[in-house]
Design a protein around this nucleic acid. Sequence first.
DNA 1: TGGTACGGCTTGCGCGTGCAAGCTGTACCA
DNA 2: TGGTACAGCTTGCACGCGCAAGCCGTACCA
Lengths: 331, 331
Amino acid sequence: MSERTRRVTAADVARSLGVSRATVGYVLNNTPGQTISAATRERVLAEAERLGYRPHRTAQALASGRSMIVMLLLPDWPMEYSLRQHLETASRVLDEAGYSLVTHTRHGGGHARPLWELLSPDVVIAWTPITAAERASMKASGITRILPPPRQSRSFLASPTLNAGARLQIDYLHELGHRRIGYAASGDKRLALLSRGRVAGAREAAERLGLGLLDVRPVDHRGGSAAKALRHWRQEGVTAIAAFNDNLAAMTMAAALRAGLAVPGDLAVIGHDDTPLAGMLYPSLSSVSIDNVGLGHYFADLALRAARDEPPPEKAPDLHARVVPRESTIR
Amino acid sequence: MSERTRRVTAADVARSLGVSRATVGYVLNNTPGQTISAATRERVLAEAERLGYRPHRTAQALASGRSMIVMLLLPDWPMEYSLRQHLETASRVLDEAGYSLVTHTRHGGGHARPLWELLSPDVVIAWTPITAAERASMKASGITRILPPPRQSRSFLASPTLNAGARLQIDYLHELGHRRIGYAASGDKRLALLSRGRVAGAREAAERLGLGLLDVRPVDHRGGSAAKALRHWRQEGVTAIAAFNDNLAAMTMAAALRAGLAVPGDLAVIGHDDTPLAGMLYPSLSSVSIDNVGLGHYFADLALRAARDEPPPEKAPDLHARVVPRESTIR
DNA sequence: TGGTACGGCTTGCGCGTGCAAGCTGTACCA
DNA sequence: TGGTACAGCTTGCACGCGCAAGCCGTACCA
């Protein structure tokens, strides 16, 4: 095995310099309340650099009780581009604050050992509701900062903030002159919470505009569901469809074209999230784009405040939703 | 703060039972070479259960030198569905072996502290080539098992295994009677390695079939690129397009339809990866499906062997690529 | 000249675990 | 009856670090 070259520790740096290990630690951590001469500080830094010292994060975590890890629990539905894009921003912001973002997708099977137990993150923040069992498991692992808090576990996904886009879709279609509008909701159970929220937003907008009841139909990836919904809509004289996301919009549009309808002539369609897919279709798909960067900042802020045991920000983030018009709604 | 309820440690279990901490450890870890009476074993297990003991993974990692973490470095291109689906399988297989899979996407910015330093995984395994700097950083963090090894850093992405699908595309189009076939390669630099491999596979198949040189054109997400490629192909009398992936296929198809061509009448199109997108289009997109489960097993196996310091498997995995025919190639 | 203040360090414990080595009593054998 | 073997434990160190507390010398002041 040839003594698998051991990694350099703070003790190595100290020994090689003839100072104590504590001194090395104080210098490298810039520990407040310690007075170290500039000369020593310089020597320590130089030697650490020379030896290629890397602090052993595991040992740091054990000693300090903080792992500097923020764990973001993602839904296992395909959020693809749309909501996932904010991760990069969140990761960067947290990084600047000294925290690392680790994402985790809980897939059904039930892990032998859940990842939070392994990583002991300082903060767990979840997109999807956290089950009581999961919460208990986290508590037992010593995780105290869990977002969202118990009572609000479903709050964010159902929050009005995330409905702004849905309202906008209806406003936009109304503006184009459509008076009978259908809504393609998600038939996927995993998306139920989010979908319900958006439906509520769309309904609200429709009511405000005096459009009467919105014709909401579930669409999923299974073959006939879009075609079936379409028949209903046509019977009701619907001339425009707002969809839960771009995927459902694409499926609805395909069903319409396959049925011999013209898009947007006979049926206008608008998606949600402005994924790359929208631009790949023919006709290209109008959509609603969302401020993913802002969302990333919001999540990072949420996590950082929790890590510092500060109260959460009162106000939800502004999504800055805006319509991206393409061929599927305008000629 | 009310003494933020401390987590239960092995010492708590030992104390409450009047046995030593080592005994608790031996029982819970089933340490070989230790003889513990059935009665004591039972008592320890019961008490650990009763107190809700969870081993402190961080401390375990520090003491044992193994984190039981496998870190998979993902490319930052949108592999979304296609190649990413294998993750679930890999995660499950590793989980059964006691390892946890943590995925990490290195986005350009350059982390202040790279994630591998934070987690000290037992194995790092990368889809994309690992830079020399990254490799050095890993070594300095004490990570010795890095896949792929230095010299082969580009091997997997360029391996013939991953080209099986491209060969199949050409075979299939040839079978349908097409003799002038175009290939839509990826214009994305991040995909260059993979794309080049597939182009090579497609070329090989074309040559074998006596089709002469394949007409390869880059397509990317930018507006005009598909239309431009299409004009070239039409001039050359191309009647069918094999695309690097479903996205490029969709864009090519949209460009064709927009130009007034019939698909598949004037131009047949086949994608690669069989993403959900394929079924959402009109005409629906023929594609090549890949055995993601098998790929997941392969990655897990690769990681596990490395973790145990065993030699890697000699043979690459069989992708079991197969054509999924849809409307874009057959009427 | 004695006392105090404080800069600049060192000593040492604790974090929760794995594991080598040692220790004790009983069973068994010559 | 004395010795050996071994089941069934315990003692104690190591992992690499953070950090509280202490220690030593010099500068400054009365």
